[in-house]
Design a protein around this nucleic acid. Sequence first.
DNA 1: GCAAGGTC
Length: 664
Amino acid sequence: MWLIVTEKDNTARRIAGILFGRVKVRKIDGVNVYFSQDEKNAVVGLKGHIVELDYPKEYNNWSKVPLKSLLKADLVKKVKARNIAKALSQLAQKAERVTIATDYDREGELIGVEALEIIKKANPSVKADRAKYSAITPQEIKKAFSSTTKINFNLAKAAETRQIVDLMWGALLTRLLSLSSGRLGKDFLSVGRVQSPTLRFIVEREREIQQFKPTPYWEIFAEFENGEKFSAKHVKRFLKKEEAEEAFSRIGDRAVVKKYVEKDVSERRPIPFNTTEFLREAGKFMAPDKAMSIAENLYMNGYISYPRTDNTVYPPSLNLKAIVSKFLNSEFKAEAEIALSHMKPSRGKKETKDHPPIHPVEVASRKDLSKDEWRIYELVVRRFLATLAPDAVWAVRQAEIDASGEIFKATGKQLVNPGWRAIYVYYKAEESFLPGLHEGQTLKVLSKKIEEKKTKPPGRYTMSSIIKLMEKYNLGTKSTRHEILRKLYSRGYIRGNPLKPTEVAFAVIDALKKEAEVITLPDMTAKLEEDMDRIEEGKQDQKAVVNESAKFLEEVLENVNEEELGKTIREGVRKDRVVGKCPECGNDLEIRKARGRFIGCTSYPECRFTLPLPQKGRLEVTARKCDKHDMSILRIRPSKGKSWTFCPYCSYIEWKGRDGQSQG
DNA sequence: GCAAGGTC
């Protein structure tokens, strides 16, 4: 038998369809296997990595295992998907040839080799080869399977090295920080090659905001008239009040048009969606992890294409016109017609061969989908149609006006041909008015005003802007970035959106910068990429790369002052428990634990002010404050049901009020 | 109970 192994069930099914025509599906150990009619060929799909690298059981007790021993431990491969491993072993016994047809990239090569190792154990004499394809189309698949190559074990080795290095650094530093600060169990503090640099970006932005000193400046505005009224802004930003006032007083009641231009400016249609762009846009109304899971669902149900892609260029094999035509019989009829009138696809900078940009594949109707699913589906449809539509055209007018030597600028923008904007309705077209003028024309100055403003600190990152930043620095992959963010939330490192780091996050980043700064920098990923390339080329071996990491980490352990490290982190943890100021003595109020949890004053026993707290459910301090009491809003996440938020002081007052009534 | 990477 010829056995073909793909990265996931879905591609197994499609490849079997292309290669065999008619397919017999049978479940082996609960796993779909796609056979040809004569059962001489079979395709089976994995679930990505089916084995996981880990420390042996003896290393499980964090408190008892010396950290140093983690550096010398032999890692083991634990089977994660037991049923798939069993199915592979069974199929292997009947197979004389196995073709690895996982994704054509580094991680895919390792995923394939993992499966091959299980197969070889069951049948050592099986012959193995590799099929490489970059699109699941009949031509491409047939070509790949008629011209298979050798398995690239060096490439798999490179991916495995990444796993070892990530685990080693992650486990050692995670345990070091958690142990020294006493944050054990579910409260542990994680460290990693991707999450820590990401967190550092967030922490450093917050520090910039905290240290920001607003400086005042002055701007001058004026209203002019040539029959029609319009306003304009002085070209200069004044840093001194006196200068602004001098300029202001010079402006008389007449002005002259110095320059005037009218032109049509076209605004390019948006580029096709890759995962990052998609999550960024969905981020306007939905959290990225939710948007991602909905997109996966829509994909599984055949409404949209594969949502994990870096590609922003439609491949020529994609029949765009056929897809657009489907929407002529849908509520997007008008939009589809605009696209069909043009049909010139835009293209982004990134072109990869793995998957096409995200696009709809089937027409859905509103009643087939939940409300959120529909919003995501609609976004994908509108984006797709917009990428094929004509550019938008704006009529732009620009004027420079001289008012007694003071120069003002005014612009008018009017959308004359909406093009793609009629389809992609997520950006508002902001129009502004300027009447037609001509150079040398005299204007009346109707009014003038001077405004004091202040420079503003940079904004916090949002979920979508941080994902964009991660992409820029090559941190994580299209499939993991949103999960890294989720991790930062669940570790209590960040709160809210825009992202606000907690005090623990500050403490963790400060501690890491002092003890092992490389783990907080994107450079580490860059260096690892270089090492992996060299391993793939056969110029570097795994051991050398792993030893280099071990040596560095050993030095960290030798130089670290655990007591001091623990102290800084514990101080951060303490600050995160502070919810506001005590109304009786003005000291910090914090979440405390005695028999149950409650809010108490830090100057206890001098001050005995307390507030009650619900005893059940996970308690979180949110980034928001109550307007009335300047106290942090708290959130309870019950084990079942929806989470809810409250101000501890407000709800205490309310509760006391009700109590008073029942007694009186 | 640790990482990041696949996939669900």
